[in-house]
Computed example of a mutant assay.
Amino acid sequence: MTTVRVGTRGSHLALTQTGTVADALRKTTKVDTELVTITTDGDRSNEPLSRAGGVGLFTGALRDSLLAGDCDVIVHSLKDLPTAPHPDLVVAAIPRRVDARDALCARGDLTLDTLPEGARVGTGSPRRRAQLLARRPDLDVVDIRGNVDTRLGFVTDGTLDAVILAAAGLERIGRGAAVTDYLSLERWPTAPGQGALAVEVRRGQEHLVRALEHKNTRAVVEAERQLLALLEAGCSAPVGAHAFIDNDLIFLTGRVYSTDGSTILTASHAAYWPDVDAPREIAERAAAELRAAGADDLIAADTGATND
């Protein structure tokens, strides 16, 4: 194969992060790359994520194009990728993760603690909504959609006092200066896999991108995503997770929120690393603890279903 065709969404952020993957692939394998832009259901819809249907919203069209042979590799923001394995596709590489934090972008350099009572804060994420209301129940949380520049524009034009976005996305497109407050992962765990990219190929073609794999990143994001899967929660559910490796231990903290932020369930577990079963083990223990505490009821209340 002389040229590897890399499929991507057409947003500024998607093109930028896919471009970094294509560049890394070209440097490590000496194979030419070509970007193929694909429009997804998430790009067509203006509905808030809580109503548009989170699972597969940004990934389905990319996967269809890969299966059809229109491209050889696709790149996802890992937090958008469904946790269930695909029968014909495989995430063959997860490059090194960047900043997993959420970031507040507010007028006048305000922080989450200094926003005035009743301030209007925009987000399209049920998790972020729940976290905002848990910490600042006085805020007016507004559902928004749109790309990073559109969302930042709501603050610039005075429509909103602040928005919350992924720090990784802001940094990737050079908009880090808009951040007025980084939200610590200890107090504010983010979406499972946030800050990481997933490079997916057809089964049997893993060799195309294997050089991009980062072992420790895969371990921590697999712990986070397995927790989400075990809770039977979609990627738009009010669930936050943060895993990290420190010396010979891997740690995982998971939190499940009620949509109004009034209830928070937390579980934290650790295991020895690099035991290959450690990510699964800590996810299983955290999921069991959260379910025993009532996580199923909170997730069902959010989805409007008794079982996902």
Rank of each mutant, 00 (worst) to 15 (best):
L231C: 05
G53M: 12
A292Y: 00
G234E: 15
L290T: 03
L49D: 05
P192W: 15
V239T: 05
G254D: 06
R63H: 12
A283K: 01
F154Q: 11
E200R: 01
V90I: 14
A295F: 03
L230D: 01
N247H: 14
T8R: 06
F58M: 09
A68S: 15
G54V: 09
L249H: 03
P279D: 02
G304F: 11
A288L: 01
A168R: 05
L231K: 02
R285S: 01
A191P: 00
G195Q: 13
K79T: 13
T20E: 15
D64V: 06
C105V: 06
A233R: 04
A119C: 11
I94D: 03
T2A: 14
A14D: 15
E47K: 09
L228V: 09
N247M: 12
P137A: 15
L13P: 01
Y182T: 14
A300V: 09
F58T: 02
V31A: 12
Q17W: 12
L15E: 08
D157H: 10
I144H: 04
D72A: 11
Q131Y: 08
S11I: 11
E171K: 08
E200P: 01
S50L: 08
K27A: 09
P82D: 12
L25W: 04
H76A: 09
R151W: 06
L115D: 12
Y257H: 13
A14P: 03
T59Q: 03
V276R: 11
V75A: 13
P85N: 10
P279W: 00
L66F: 06
D23K: 07
S262C: 07
V73A: 11
R129V: 14
P274M: 02
V142C: 11
S262E: 15
V21P: 00
E206H: 03
H242F: 02
G53K: 10
R280C: 00
D260M: 03
T217P: 01
G234F: 08
H76E: 12
N147W: 09
A287E: 00
R136Y: 06
V141C: 10
L133R: 05
R26A: 15
V98D: 13
G146I: 12
T37N: 05
S11Y: 07
D72F: 11
A198Y: 04
P192N: 14
T263P: 02
P48C: 09
A178Q: 03
A162Y: 14
N247F: 06
T3C: 14
L265P: 00
A178M: 08
N46F: 01
G304T: 13
R225M: 15
A286K: 01
V179R: 05
